[in-house]
Design a protein around this nucleic acid. Structure first.
Length: 266
DNA sequence: ATGACGGAAGTTTTCCGA
């Protein structure tokens, strides 16, 4: 099982790259089973379900015009689809969860939670307060969700770094947005529910990032942040075989500012 | 200097992202 996440920064613009990337993974002998997408930036009626179906992926999605929007693509049909956080009134499309019955050696179904965490803009702003409220609502819901679904992944664009190893300039960005101790405490609170950072289960190259600023040659200078994550429940941790960030799509013409990352479960 | 770059809405500029 290969499960991936990618903030595409407009699925309208990036659909050809998503299809190319999925085809390239399959051609390399390791097809993607589930792909979580964030920042679709399109309304539900504009979602390219037919093109994805043609590529062998059934999708569920929660769209929004201009901003946000999330989807799950999979080679199996989705069950028990949940859109946004129950009990948390939210005008922004940020979360979608589904259950996949993978068959084969995976006897138990897999619960996949794809999320686009709020950015937060700046500490002390209204958007930061919203980010903290959203994080608390997520933690509360996830606690119950984990009890119902022991084999669970939470993946997507978290907009939070774990620590300074995830930051290209820890001094310059000290206690700034995505790097603050307040945000990091919320991320640790998710781990405390019994989740594990898939990336850190394996040896990784130094300065591994998933996002680079479009400006000032950020990618070329590897001035980035690791803010996209895949968290595995304890029941899945032992089955993890590899976890990688794929920088190749960031080198495309008209790239997303984020790179995809994936985990292989044995 | 709160910029740059890119996407979207929609119109010559603004909002937002991270």
């Amino acid at each position: 099982m290969k499960i991936a996440t990618w903030n595409v920064n407009s699925l309208t613009v990036r659909l050809p790259q998503v299809l190319d990337w999925l085809a390239a993974q399959a051609a390399a002998g390791a097809p993607v089973d589930v792909l979580a997408l964030q920042e679709l930036k399109l309304s539900d009626d504009k979602f390219p379900a037919a093109a994805l179906e043609q590529a062998g992926y059934s999708a569920v999605w929660l769209g929004q015009k201009t901003y946000n929007g999330v989807a799950l693509l999979a080679r199996q049909p989705a069950a028990e689809v949940q859109r946004n956080l129950p009990g948390f009134a939210d005008e922004q499309a940020r979360l979608i969860a589904a259950t996949y019955h993978t068959g084969g050696t995976d006897a138990q179904p897999l619960r996949v939670v794809g999320a686009y965490f709020p950015n937060g803009q700046a500490l002390g702003s209204d958007k930061f307060a919203y980010k903290l409220r959203w994080l608390e609502a997520l933690r509360t819901w996830l606690e119950a969700e984990l009890a119902r679904h022991p084999r669970l992944l939470l993946l997507g664009d978290f907009n939070i770094t774990f620590d300074d190893a995830d930051v290209w300039d820890p001094v310059g960005l000290h206690e700034s947005i995505h790097c603050s101790s307040v945000e990091r405490a919320h991320l640790q609170a998710l781990l405390a529910l019994g989740l594990h950072d898939a990336h850190r289960l394996f040896e990784q190259p130094p300065k591994s990032y998933t996002w680079w600023d479009y400006r000032q040659l950020g990618f070329q200078k590897n001035r980035g942040l690791r803010i996209d994550h895949i968290l595995l429940s304890s029941a899945l941790k032992a089955s993890a075989r590899a976890c990688q960030i794929d920088r190749a799509p960031r080198k495309n013409p008209q790239p997303s500012d984020h790179a995809p990352l994936w985990v292989q479960l044995g």
